[in-house]
Nucleic acid binder design. Structure first.
Ligand SMILES: [Mn+2]
Ligand SMILES: [Mn+2]
Ligand SMILES: [Mn+2]
Ligand SMILES: [Mn+2]
Lengths: 171, 171
DNA sequence: ACATAAGTGTAGCCACGGCTTCATTTCGGC
DNA sequence: GCCGAAATGAAGCCGTGGCTACACTTATGT
């Protein structure tokens, strides 16, 4: 093959790094992806915890079959997820009995539920149809950081304020 | 086994379980999660395709090591991802040579890149700090449907309109 | 009370996406 | 041209999160 006409060495992002001021734009890149992967790992726990919380609120307990049905998976899959919740100290259960949340699990479920609602609300606020917002939020929510969540809340509060009351620029 | 002291019937506030239309309001629920799972499955392909596109734009080709470095993974992981891209008809490569995108892969990369920017822009527009927006968008973007993306674009266009020129919005 | 239905557990399969380790190839300096 | 370094490939491990198939337990109805 022709000796590769492309010399990467010349086009390299920058042999010397101008430190302090300019962050190496490609150096933070891996971090972004790592964070996204970490968020993805928590997705299952979060969704199952919230779901179990919902079922407990409705029926007083969460059963594997109900969890599986609502999550759209088979019951062994739900069982495995519950096992992981148990390992993480988020749920408790006994064989052939319902699943319950620990205090920690309940706290998580609560946070997740609130965040979910905020994300949906924000999407609707910027013009996304309600049904679509509900759909997309189910996946997006797990990647919404605390900072972003707070920004969403502030934004929603701001647009909720009566338009006549214009203390907008200030706090 | 001890005669289980936990009778589920007592724990349940409502003895009767979802007998009426309770199933119907939760019928869409599995679909939401299935969609979120599908979006997650596409995440890897999308991010790698975009990344390969970036590298080609910079260096004329994408090398496994560079991909791995920017994605924050080891090179065998990047190799596996490239293999999957090839299988899906999104990339082409020959042993010990650079990786390139097919027309389809290039189209995907372009869409993903544009969507990424839109998501970041929207986050910033509603008050999320730029760096945080970049972080969160990396994960959120894959769950943004076409409908939501269009809503984002409309919203951004709307707020981009000069505040003084309010011909568009009825007053 | 007992038969059957429904719920649950368990085992084992698969693909994915990380990783380490080692073999092989290509590249670059001399 | 050679040789060492760097890049790439290939094998194989692990955990996750789907699934099916089958065993067992619990609930239910007669
Ligand atoms: Mn979710
Ligand atoms: Mn949710
Ligand atoms: Mn991404
Ligand atoms: Mn992206």
């Amino acid at each position: 093959m022709p000796a590769d006409p492309l010399d990467r060495s010349a086009a390299a992002p920058g042999p010397e790094r101008a430190e302090t001021g300019a962050e190496q734009e490609t150096a933070c890149q891996p971090d972004r992806f790592n964070r996204a992967r970490a968020a993805q790992a928590a997705t299952i726990l979060e969704d199952y915890a919230e779901m179990i919380g919902d079922l407990i609120a409705e029926f007083g307990e969460a059963r594997v079959t109900d969890i599986a049905h609502r999550m759209g998976v088979t019951h062994p899959t739900a069982t495995k997820a519950v096992a992981r919740l148990r390992r993480e100290g988020l749920a408790i259960s006994r064989p052939y009995r319902g699943i319950f949340l620990t205090d920690e699990g309940e706290a998580l479920a609560g946070r997740v539920r609130a965040r979910h609602r905020t994300v949906v609300d924000l999407l609707v606020a910027v013009g996304v149809p309600a049904e679509t917002a509900e759909m997309d939020a189910e996946g997006m929510e797990h990647h919404v950081s605390r900072t972003t969540l707070r920004a969403f809340e502030d934004y929603l509060r701001q647009i909720d304020a009566p338009p006549g009351t214009e203390s907008s620029s200030q706090d």
